[in-house]
């Protein structure tokens, strides 16, 4: 059976990893293989790690406000490399107007503050079902 693999990544300089770690653990407990990149990753490193790990999804977390630049760069590189089989989600301190823009960029879901872990787990289970 194919195992669901998810890369949890923190782009940029933001060191707030509480959310990323909580989500990583929740996915692990739901039977997912979670690859955690650690802090201070560049978008280029994140995409390359996702390729080598052959993940089904990338979860990006950024609380510094740099999400529009960093998440967009991740999406641009994915597009440039012709990768369309990796689902990208994100979380962090993200104003509503940015949520719309992020979705237009191709980010499948934005999990803002207060999102129940089950919502995130269910979302990824759906990917596995596809």
């Amino acid at each position: 059976m194919a195992k669901l693999r998810v890369l949890v990544a923190k782009p940029g300089l933001d060191g707030h990893d509480r959310g990323a770690k909580v989500v990583a653990r929740a996915l692990r407990d739901a039977g997912v293989e979670v690859i955690y990149t650690g802090l201070h990753q560049t978008p280029e490193q994140i995409v390359e790690a996702a390729i080598q790990e052959d993940v089904d999804a990338i979860g990006l977390s950024c609380l510094s406000g740099a999400h529009m630049t960093l998440f967009k760069t991740v999406m641009d590189i994915l597009k440039e490399k012709g990768i369309d089989d990796i689902v990208v989600t994100c979380g962090g301190i993200i104003p509503d107007e940015d949520v719309t823009k992020l979705k237009e960029m191709g980010i499948a879901a934005v999990f803002g503050p207060g999102t129940p872990l089950q919502t995130i787990v269910d979302f990824h289970r759906k990917i596995a079902g596809k």
């Binding site: 940029g12 300089l13 933001d14 201070h40 560049t42 609380l63 510094s64 406000g65 740099a66 999400h67 529009m68 630049t69 960093l70 760069t73």
Partner: peptide, 15 residues
């Protein structure tokens, strides 16, 4: 880092 460092991408003045 100064604002012109590569790791500073997207972070200027944000938080």
């Amino acid at each position: 880092y100064d604002t012109d460092h590569t790791m500073a991408r997207g972070e200027f003045g944000k938080c």
